[in-house]
Simulated assay, not measured.
Amino acid sequence: MIERDARQELDIAYKTYVLVQGRNVRTGPGKELLIDNKVTRSFLGG
């Protein structure tokens, strides 16, 4: 699934991959990544 609203996607996704320049830098349940400070700062603007 590719979604422009990343918060919505993370809220419903069972497994999420965070890609940076085509490389997987983080994998996990969407809700877990939604509360990960590094992910939210880097990709969700805060």
Rank of each mutant, 00 (worst) to 15 (best):
M1H: 14
M1F: 10
M1E: 13
I2R: 11
I2S: 14
I2H: 11
I2T: 15
E3A: 13
E3V: 09
R4T: 12
R4E: 15
R4Q: 15
R4D: 14
D5W: 03
D5K: 05
D5S: 07
D5T: 06
A6P: 05
A6C: 06
A6N: 01
A6T: 09
A6I: 13
R7M: 03
R7D: 07
R7T: 07
R7S: 07
Q8M: 10
Q8E: 10
E9I: 06
E9A: 09
E9Q: 06
E9F: 10
L10I: 05
L10Y: 00
L10Q: 04
L10T: 06
D11R: 14
I12Y: 08
I12A: 07
A13W: 05
A13N: 02
A13Q: 03
A13H: 03
Y14F: 12
Y14K: 08
Y14L: 08
Y14Q: 11
K15Q: 09
K15F: 02
T16S: 09
Y17M: 14
Y17V: 09
Y17D: 13
Y17P: 01
Y17Q: 11
Y17C: 08
Y17T: 08
V18C: 03
V18H: 05
V18M: 02
V18N: 02
L19K: 05
L19M: 15
V20Y: 10
V20K: 12
V20Q: 15
V20M: 05
Q21T: 14
Q21H: 10
Q21N: 14
Q21A: 12
Q21G: 10
G22A: 06
G22E: 03
R23I: 08
R23L: 14
N24D: 13
V25Q: 04
R26W: 08
R26I: 14
R26E: 07
R26A: 12
R26G: 02
T27H: 12
T27P: 04
G28H: 03
G28L: 04
G28T: 05
G28C: 02
G28A: 05
P29N: 11
P29I: 09
G30Q: 07
G30D: 07
K31E: 07
K31H: 09
E32A: 14
E32S: 11
L33Y: 00
L33K: 00
L34G: 03
L34D: 00
L34H: 00
L34I: 00
I35N: 11
I35Q: 12
I35M: 15
I35W: 01
D36F: 01
D36H: 04
D36G: 00
D36N: 10
D36Y: 04
D36V: 04
N37C: 08
K38A: 15
K38C: 08
K38E: 13
V39C: 04
V39A: 00
V39H: 01
T40A: 03
T40D: 02
T40H: 06
R41F: 15
R41Q: 14
R41H: 14
S42W: 10
S42P: 12
S42F: 08
F43A: 07
F43R: 03
L44N: 01
L44G: 03
L44R: 04
L44P: 00
G45Y: 04
G45A: 04
G45E: 00
G46S: 15
G46P: 04
